[in-house]
Structures are given as structure tokens and as C-alpha cells.
């Protein structure tokens, strides 16, 4: 399952979508909105995605992961729209026959997602806002 959604992410649904009877491990990463950046209070974040390309790029990451590890199941959900500190922005769930692979695959997927998938976030502070990572 690959999902880009404006609705709050249901973690259990993502885990279930990644689960399979052949699996001996399910590894789940949950990314949440931090309440500060470099000592400044974050009031909210706004996420936007180039949805069809984001889904295609996530699929490429899954395909690369499946070449390296024996994935039995996987599911990724990424939120868009306005999020407050503490809310869940992304959930990655991966299942494999053994636990070691599940950690490696899950880390690979979230690390790659942050590098190549066309999703952007804007941080809003008490005194301004900025697109994250846009400038050096």
C-alpha cells in the first residue's frame, strides 16, 4: 500500500497492510512533527506532495528494497496538509521473514523517501516561515 493522505494516518491500518503470514518481523517507523527547529518553536507544518510522482518514486524505493531484502509485505502512508507538533507525518511498515532484514529495509525506505520523493514541508514559527532544506 502506498498512500498520500490529508487525513490523520491510522498506524494500525498501515501495519496490517504490511503484515503477512510468511513474515516473522514487522518493523514500523513513525515520523512525527517536532515542536522545535534549531531552538525555535514550531507552530505548525504544511506538507504538500506532487502526488502521482511521489507514489511512483515511493514504488521505485520499494522495488530497490525488494531487490536487497526479502520483503514479505510493506506499506507507506504520508500525510499532507497542515500538521501540528506531535502529529504523525509518515508511517513506514515493512515485514520480512527475520527481524534483522526488517530493520535494514525500513531504514533504507525512510532514508530514501527523504531524499527523492517529491514531498515538501514548510515550517511555521511564531515570527515567520520557511520551506525546509530549500536554501544552503
Amino acid at each position: 500500500m502506498i498512500e498520500i493522505t490529508e487525513q490523520p494516518i491510522e498506524v494500525q491500518k498501515v501495519i496490517e497492510a504490511a503484515s503477512l503470514k510468511e513474515a516473522g518481523a514487522i518493523n514500523t517507523f513513525i515520523g512525527t512533527v517536532r515542536n522545535q527547529t534549531s531552538g525555535k518553536n514550531v507552530v505548525k507544518l504544511e506538507y504538500e506532495a506532487y502526488e502521482p510522482m511521489a507514489i511512483a518514486e515511493i514504488q521505485k524505493i520499494i522495488d530497490r528494497a525488494a531487490q536487497q531484502w526479502s520483503l514479505t509485505g510493506w506499506a507507506i502512508s504520508h500525510r499532507t496538509g497542515t500538521l501540528l507538533p506531535g502529529e504523525i507525518a509518515v508511517v513506514v511498515a515493512v515485514s520480512t521473514p527475520h527481524r534483522k532484514e526488517s530493520f535494514a529495509a525500513c531504514q533504507f525506505i525512510i532514508d530514501s523517501l527523504k531524499q527523492t520523493v517529491p514531498i515538501w514541508k514548510k515550517e511555521f514559527f511564531e515570527d515567520g516561515d520557511q520551506w525546509v532544506s530549500a536554501h544552503p
Binding site: 515520523g31 506538507y47 506532495a49 506532487y50 510522482m53 511521489a54 504520508h78 507525518a89 509518515v90 525512510i110 523517501l113 527523504k114 531524499q115 527523492t116 520523493v117 517529491p118 514531498i119 515538501w120 514541508k121 520551506w131 525546509v132 532544506s133 530549500a134
Partner: peptide
């Protein structure tokens, strides 16, 4: 065609 500035998902 789309412009893709530095991505920052996750």
C-alpha cells in the same frame, strides 16, 4: 513538466 526544489518529506 514540474519543478522539483529540494524535497523535505518525512
Amino acid at each position: 513538466i514540474a519543478l522539483i526544489p529540494p524535497v523535505s518529506g518525512g
